[in-house]
Simulated assay, not measured.
Amino acid sequence: MAGSTYENELFEKLKMIRQGYRAPRQVLQSLYARMMLEYSVYEFTKARFERLIDKALDDKDEDAFHTLTSQYNDWVVKYQSGNTISEHGYELECNFEAVKPPISS
């Protein structure tokens, strides 16, 4: 898998603190695994908020809607600029392109 696509993409996104050094395969695999975990948690949390907000709307529960949208907006701000994952002096910037703008309550 020396020429795998994910590895090439990681190399393009990789910001190396130690200039001139290529990251070992184990570091790349660790960064990739952590990136996938972070993205999975992001997708799960987003779906959970959407489901709970939709339920509050269906139930016409104004208090729950305002509470959930406030929590959602705080959560969205955390992910708007992406997330940096680091491993052994190497950093990978993860962006969540599907981040929705905050909800107006």
Score class of each variant (00 low, 15 high):
63 D>C: 03
78 K>R: 11
64 A>Q: 15
69 T>F: 05
84 T>Q: 03
99 V>E: 00
14 L>N: 06
40 S>I: 03
84 T>A: 00
96 F>Q: 02
89 G>L: 13
12 E>N: 10
5 T>C: 09
26 Q>V: 14
70 S>C: 09
2 A>V: 10
26 Q>D: 15
6 Y>D: 13
43 E>N: 03
83 N>L: 11
102 P>N: 06
7 E>G: 08
72 Y>K: 02
61 D>S: 14
12 E>V: 12
81 S>V: 00
9 E>C: 08
18 R>D: 14
89 G>Y: 11
15 K>L: 09
34 R>M: 05
73 N>Q: 04
88 H>N: 15
10 L>Y: 11
24 P>C: 01
82 G>S: 04
64 A>K: 14
60 K>N: 11
68 L>A: 03
83 N>V: 05
80 Q>F: 01
14 L>H: 06
10 L>K: 08
56 A>I: 07
32 Y>A: 09
70 S>Q: 12
89 G>C: 14
81 S>D: 07
86 S>Y: 08
103 I>W: 02
9 E>S: 11
4 S>T: 11
105 S>D: 10
95 N>Y: 10
15 K>C: 03
74 D>V: 06
73 N>G: 03
50 E>Q: 09
34 R>E: 09
57 L>R: 13
5 T>V: 15
55 K>G: 04
34 R>N: 06
90 Y>K: 07
74 D>P: 00
68 L>I: 09
58 D>L: 08
49 F>D: 02
42 Y>Q: 02
59 D>G: 03
63 D>N: 13
32 Y>S: 10
75 W>L: 01
6 Y>S: 13
26 Q>K: 15
37 L>I: 06
23 A>L: 08
43 E>K: 11
53 I>W: 03
57 L>W: 04
60 K>M: 06
